[in-house]
Design a protein around this nucleic acid. Structure first.
Length: 817
DNA sequence: CGGCCCCGCGTTTTT
DNA sequence: CGCGGGGCCG
């Protein structure tokens, strides 16, 4: 009822604004009213956006195409709810990155004021759930306490390695840590715990076939060891959150009642566990609003399930779907080129993204002879365009499929004197010295944290080597006590080592216990400063006069600075400043959250995955070649579709200019091997692209390179002649797609969503040819019913994108092609 | 225990 | 090619 009232008020307001606008008093009145009326910000939205923002009575899916103002809609919706009087603490907004949460919160504060927005529950899935788990742990009978440690991926990897070693599987090729880790992670993300795993024959069979029948045993041990360490891995934060709600109805009810509104960003990237948690949190009112773009789903390899967004309407009753189809970011050519590419995907929500910006330059295809030439070409072009277009370095981004490609690019940027910044690679929080320092802090707070202990017991070197650690761990497993307890009292727990070793162990334990005591009384910064010097970490870094040593010292200083900031910020808000709070936050931070204070404009070099959500005036996509992009690991059409979405993401990062480059040969794995343009290059409608001529560089003028040039020319020639005859024709995909189904145990993953909305009753079958009075000949790609209307998706000959038509209006005739 | 050398291998990675 | 892990030696 409240919501009805809110909506009517705002609706009337908009009506009034539009009315006043037509009366010609818009400017004055709006200005005056903006101070008075708290809904005035709705004027900044277009009609589609405003509709989506103001509809709050049903579960809502906002399909927000690239550059369509997704974040805007999400922030305005929250601002709208707040302005209408919904208390901030009743709104839960979940994102995937801290950065997204932070930016959104800032924008909301600007709209409605800091104090109104203050108590929003806005954060990443992981951080919000960690917070709830901490708070509720004492209301459960679980073997965790509130100060649990969060293991990052390298911590879990370390633990798994240890388990594999203990089981004698260390060098077994079928039990590679990465494989085991992925498998366990996938199980947790499907809400399958270790016991359930052992009872599901599909898992066991699968493991048996893959020659790793002990995986369920490893999983069980792994889970137990996490409990022993009072630690949760990233997946546990979701897995245990689900079971917290599932197993404790009173806790579930509490949060269901608290959150009157649940909003989810990047919904296309949610995994099964996240989806189930959302379903548990949403009732009774079912006020869920999810925002996402199926065309930008690029994380399925991490467990993201695109079906979550595709099935939203089925899973939430009375759901309403809103589509934001106008792209504000890019030029027409870029939007249309990207659209023509993504139209080759069968599995997608039908939509037509359009731009009303200027046409701009066509997308530039830039064939190159080698990766070296490609890098030179990019560096040279950036240099030229900086001058010609009067741009700064930070107007440019170079995007690539794999991190390995960054090396040459970096090289040539340096040679050309172009400032750049590489994202990816080692993040600040994964640097050895930072991890070491954090391990000291962690161990001081949680003595059971075995990964932290083994990491620092001999760092800096204090004469406790591998053998001693081995003996320590053996005693620990035999006596079933924490490793730290054995170190503290080796004799008592049957440690079989020399007197000297025992001495070293006890003095290490005493040092840590001293830290633990200090942690109770000092704030996080004071404490960490003490630990940094008393542990010898800073001293060791200072001794090292190599450039790397200096870096390490500076990084440690930076961490301490960060702590100081953390403490002073939280002092202001009256929050706890103990090291516990800091550790809880820091384990969920990533490099994206670590801002380097450097104001020089720089060219951005990053993988396409890392570029999601960002935008740049000029974008280069490098290495768009078969076996690299799409990756050589791609086998099924489903996998190729994900790569195509990745290419789509890459192209739609560009605001004004987009270059796509590919080489005839590429240096990889120590040798030069031939390469050919990606199928994606050919899938882009030729009317939106132009091809740059190969500019010869002075370093190759021999016959070999002439050969290569000929090869490129002939390839290009072929491409020009028959742009639509590739094996990646839409229809071939459909065929492959269906063939692949029976092989897939999980065939819901490959099924077509549109048919799941509800099947249309049409005389035209998918794949058949039809004739349309105006559009001519076309092939039926799909049929489905939406809002009770039968629709038909047809790719007409000569059109870049398929069209969706209402069946009852389109006068279609079936024809034989 | 720690340093050195050789061998094998090589996607993307919000938390 | 360049990194990390394992093995061997001082």
């Amino acid at each position: 009822m409240i919501k009805n009232a809110i909506n009517s008020i705002a609706f009337l307001f908009c009506f009034l604004c539009i009315f006043l606008y037509f009366c010609g008093v818009y400017d004055e009145t709006t200005k005056r009213m903006s101070n008075i009326d708290k809904f005035s910000f709705l004027e900044h939205l277009n009609e589609q956006q405003r509709e989506a923002v103001m509809a709050n009575e049903n579960p809502e899916l906002i399909v927000a195409g690239a550059g369509s103002g997704k974040t805007r809609v999400l922030t305005y919706k929250i601002a709208y709810l707040l302005a209408a009087g919904l208390p901030a603490y009743k709104i839960l907004a979940l994102t995937f990155t801290n950065k997204a949460a932070r930016e959104m919160k800032n924008r909301i504060e600007k709209l409605v004021g800091e104090d109104v927005a203050k108590n929003l529950w806005m954060g990443t899935f992981h951080s919000v759930f960690a917070r709830i788990l901490r708070q509720e742990m004492r209301n459960t009978n679980w073997p965790y306490n509130s100060d649990f440690t969060i293991y990052d991926s390298s911590d879990s990897e370390g633990l798994l390695k240890q388990i594999l070693k203990e089981m004698g599987l260390k060098d077994n090729q079928y039990y590679k840590v990465s494989v085991v880790q992925n498998r366990i992670s996938a199980a947790k993300n499907s809400l399958v715990g270790p016991d359930a795993y052992s009872n599901i024959s599909a898992y066991l069979e699968d493991d048996k076939l893959a020659k790793r029948p002990l995986l369920n045993v490893i999983y069980k041990k792994y889970s137990q060891r996490l409990i022993d360490a009072n630690a949760m891995d990233f997946d546990d934060l979701l897995f245990l959150m689900f079971y917290l709600l599932q197993n404790f109805p009173e806790i579930k009810t509490k949060y269901q009642n608290r959150f009157e509104f649940v909003l989810v960003d990047e919904y296309q990237d949610t995994n099964y566990a996240q989806y189930q948690i959302i379903k548990l949190l949403a009732p009774p009112a079912n006020n869920v609003c999810v925002v996402g773009d199926d065309a930008q789903s690029i994380y399925s390899f991490r467990g993201a399930d695109i079906q979550n967004i595709l099935n939203f309407r089925r899973d939430f009753q009375n759901a309403k779907v809103y589509k934001l189809e106008r792209n504000y970011r890019s030029t027409k050519n870029i939007v249309d080129a990207a659209g023509s590419l993504i139209s080759h995907n069968i599995n997608q929500i039908p939509k037509h993204i359009f731009s009303q910006n200027e046409s701009g330059e066509k997308v530039h295809l830039a064939p190159q002879l080698s990766d070296r030439d490609e890098a030179r070409f990019i560096a040279r072009t950036i240099g030229e365009r900086k001058k010609k277009d009067i741009r700064e370095s930070d107007d440019f981004a170079v995007l690539y499929r794999t991190n390995a490609q960054s090396r040459v690019l970096e090289d040539e940027m340096r040679k050309a004197g172009i400032p750049y910044r590489i994202y990816g690679g080692l993040s600040f929080y994964q640097r050895k010295e930072i991890k070491d320092m954090l391990a000291y802090l962690r161990l001081a707070v949680n003595h059971k944290d075995e990964e932290a202990l083994v990491r620092i017991i001999n760092t800096p070197a204090r004469g406790i080597g591998d053998t001693t650690v081995e003996k320590l761990r053996r005693a620990s497993t035999e006596r079933d006590v924490a490793v730290f307890e054995v170190a503290k009292n080796p004799m008592l727990f049957g440690f079989e080592g020399s007197k000297g070793a025992m001495q070293k162990l006890t003095s290490f334990a005493t040092m840590i216990e001293g830290f633990t005591e200090k942690a109770q009384t000092s704030d996080a910064y004071e404490f960490a400063k003490d630990v940094a010097s008393a542990s010898g970490l800073v001293a060791a870094a200072m001794l090292d006069q190599t450039p790397e040593g200096k870096d390490r010292y500076e990084n440690l200083q930076e961490l301490l600075n960060g702590l100081q900031e953390f403490v002073s910020e939280r002092r202001n808000t009256g929050e706890s400043v103990s090291i516990n709070e800091f550790l809880q936050e820091v384990s969920l931070l990533t490099d994206q959250d670590h801002n380097q204070n450097d104001s020089t404009p720089r060219v951005t070099l990053m993988t396409i995955h890392a570029a999601k959500g960002l935008e740049f005036p000029v974008v280069f996509i490098a290495g768009v070649e078969e076996n690299l992009f799409p990756s050589a690991f791609c086998e099924t059409p489903t996998e190729v579709e994900e790569e195509r979405r990745l290419m789509y993401v890459a192209m739609t990062r560009a605001e004004q200019v987009c270059y796509i480059s590919y080489c005839s040969q590429r240096f990889r794995f120590g040798t030069t091997s031939p390469a050919s343009p990606s199928r994606f290059v050919k899938e882009i409608d030729t009317q939106f692209v132009d091809e740059l001529r190969q500019v010869s560089s002075p370093s190759w003028s021999n016959s070999f390179s002439q050969q290569l040039r000929d090869e490129i020319n002939s390839r290009y020639f072929k491409y020009q002649e028959k742009p639509h005859s590739q094996p990646t024709d839409i229809n071939d995909f459909r065929v492959n797609h269906q063939q692949s189904r029976p092989n897939h145990s999980d065939n819901k993953e490959t099924s077509n969503i549109k048919s799941q909305l509800s099947t249309a009753d049409t005389p035209f079958s998918i794949g058949s040819w039809v004739m349309h009075d105006r559009f001519g000949k076309g092939k039926v790609l799909d049929t489905y019913a939406e809002n009770g209307n039968d629709r038909i998706v047809i790719k007409f000959v000569g059109e870049s994108q398929p069209k969706t038509l209402l069946l009852k209006f389109a006068k279609l005739k079936a024809i034989n092609n």
